[in-house]
Amino acid sequence: MGRLEEALASYLTRHFGHAVRVESLDRIPVGASRETYRFVMRADREAELTARRMILRLDPPTSLIETDRRTEYAAIRAFHGSDVPVPELLLIEEDPEALGASFIVMQEIVGGEAAPYRLIEPPYRANLETTGQHKWSILGSIAKTDPAACGLDRVLPPVAAEDCWRQELQRWETMLDADELEPQPIQRAAIRWMKRNPPPPAQRISVVHGDYRTGNLLVSDTGAVIGVLDWEMAHLGDPLEDLAWSINRVWCFRKDERRGGMLPKDEAIAIWEKSSGLAVDADALRWWELLACLKGQAIWISATKEYQTGATHDPLMALAGWMQVNSQDRATLELMGRLSHGIST
């Protein structure tokens, strides 16, 4: 038994007040902001023997994004039992004493695949349109959820409808300022444009997942979305922010027009509109798509810095720099009508 298995079993035994065994602990390649492990939890209690497949989400020394585990815990709890599929939570521990870092334990949603490069291959490939229907319909459900009704208005910081854009632009520009290792003329031009041409106030204040993309969904082999994961960037804001991030060009896993590797942009938007009950203002969405480009670029550049400075050895962080940064710049140029297609690549 490894050290982490032992420490987790010891913690769970203390937490539940009876013997708990941890078996088959295995790190899985999902989630860029937490170390994620799958394990089997066996509880021996009198005549009752139970075995449950669980997930451990452990704060890492470095990550793509600095996030708040309590936000993730609250958001998952708020949506549990709704038509937004989320895992069942077991516990949150913020004291690093037990495992060396804070962590969350939740039920594993069995039978789901999240890796985009697997989803574009059989058996998932044949059902990607169905998956797309589910994906943007669920995102619409998140957008129409009343934050007060699900209790998240008491957890997530409030924001006025007219301030949503300013808050997000400031957040990601600040990260770019702090972490860029080389000048970013395309993003700087986009930032100036966004400041000169702000979007209208949000139609409503919604729960924004913050990282709603194919890699954060669990998909069954029949194409159904059976889990929405990685809620640590959840906040209150303009629901167009999530829609724009979900259709970001860098998530075109099949290197074509299908967003998230699933559906053309217009179809994805139409499904979201029907589900959310909100109408999309094309100019406002374009602004939020540009914000999504800036947000992506800030995240990729921040990850690049972690790798460059030796803070991490995770090749995912280097890939963020080499695979995403240039694509994100090209996506920005496309949205601004400045991508010259005549230039060979």
């Binding site: 075109c252 080499w322 090209r330």
Partner: peptide
Amino acid sequence: IWFEFSASTARRALSIGRF
């Protein structure tokens, strides 16, 4: 200037990029 930005992304493009 915008054209040069576009040209710079073409020069920097890698086959692993999605766009």
